[in-house]
Design a binder for these strands. Sequence first.
DNA 1: GTCTATACATGGATAGAC
DNA 2: GTCTATCCATGTATAGAC
Lengths: 245, 245
Amino acid sequence: MARPRRSQAREDAKGEFVEAAWELFSRRGYDATPVSAIIEKVGLSKGSFYYYFTSKEEVLDAVVSRIVDEISRAVEPIPSHPEFTTQEKMRSFFRAIGDWKVANMDIIREAAEVIYRDENVIIRHKMNNMVVERLSPALAEIVARGIEEGAIDAEEAEGTAEMILRFFNAMAEMQAASFVAAKDDPAALMRVIRKAELYMAAIEKMLGVSRGVLSPLDADFEERLQGAVSGEGMPREPGLSGERG
Amino acid sequence: MARPRRSQAREDAKGEFVEAAWELFSRRGYDATPVSAIIEKVGLSKGSFYYYFTSKEEVLDAVVSRIVDEISRAVEPIPSHPEFTTQEKMRSFFRAIGDWKVANMDIIREAAEVIYRDENVIIRHKMNNMVVERLSPALAEIVARGIEEGAIDAEEAEGTAEMILRFFNAMAEMQAASFVAAKDDPAALMRVIRKAELYMAAIEKMLGVSRGVLSPLDADFEERLQGAVSGEGMPREPGLSGERG
DNA sequence: GTCTATACATGGATAGAC
DNA sequence: GTCTATCCATGTATAGAC
């Protein structure tokens, strides 16, 4: 027996609001998206919106939470992987984040320009903080294990894990600033990637692991990124990852 | 008898707006401060405000710029200091920033709670970016010199300088998160300071300098911070060479 | 060039009916 | 749970006075 519903029953109205909000925030920005736009998209009224969320900010929290959930799911099993060494776990960890970015490159590329704008710091900020909060435990577990085994040189696993993730966020901010500064310069991307390697190398130094333990993924990531960014895989000059002068 | 100028003569109306804005932003927050509050405080009208600034955001930019100017003035002479070694320059550099924070602790302590709130990320963000932008050149000069002399192990001075400053910002974000998480816990401050040492040690590792080159300032900073935080007036003594004239 | 007064559109949020 | 109607704060624009 079917449950009696109102004319246009919603399976998951709240979810629809979150979905619509993300689409709008990523295309127009947070401040620039009025609640009225969200409700229009969903086809419900303002009253409904405020039935599910106490404020516009709350729907942003939900949006961010949903995104971080995805990354979190990919990262959680890594620390307890039975066969991975500490190095492999670290590499997988960063790669999981990178993979998410690559997998969502089409969205990100479109959203980046918007999200990276000053007015939308609030989005990045909530994302950054949630990444630290939710991903720290898994990374801390890997680091703790690494310290035990002597594979990592650090004093305190949790603080170190948090620090690395915040450093990762700082790297993203660098990318944001670089892209905004030169969004029309096609060479900008390569400069950003080169800078990113500096950051990865810095993490290696922080952890006292040898150079290249974390960064090889970059050479790989770089290719995939390049493909994703160009949209069709333009031919390009070979490796720049290892060289220095 | 002085001719009565319109209401009250203003020497520097624009400066007064900036001053008033900073006082209000730091006490109530950016979003929570309507332009009407700023003009009330100054005693001028909205039209005046928009004569000097094209938007509310612009006055925030001016506020942030003024603050970063202060730090910048303290930092600029350091790279060309004739007698300092690279290590001393680095130490002075970080200390100059620390000193500014200590000197302004009363304001900061009051403002911290407000500034650190999510709604006010925009303030921190603009501050962070401006710090990177304005302080990078000086730090890069120190680093470049250090690389030449073999005192610092890094690949590229400018990128490294920018990275370190962003890392510094990340440290501030950690502090923000920690304070917000436990604002009533008196032990929280010590934990934060301890965490901060982790960050300073990480910078030392990044630069390939020996442990303690940068962090001794922390022991010092810690004391002064402790004094400042406990509410006692602190001896504010810029232990650093040149600054404002 | 500097400022006052005022008008206005936008948009977040609420109340209460169904 | 969803609606309609409404409130009201506030950023911004403008006309015009000194």
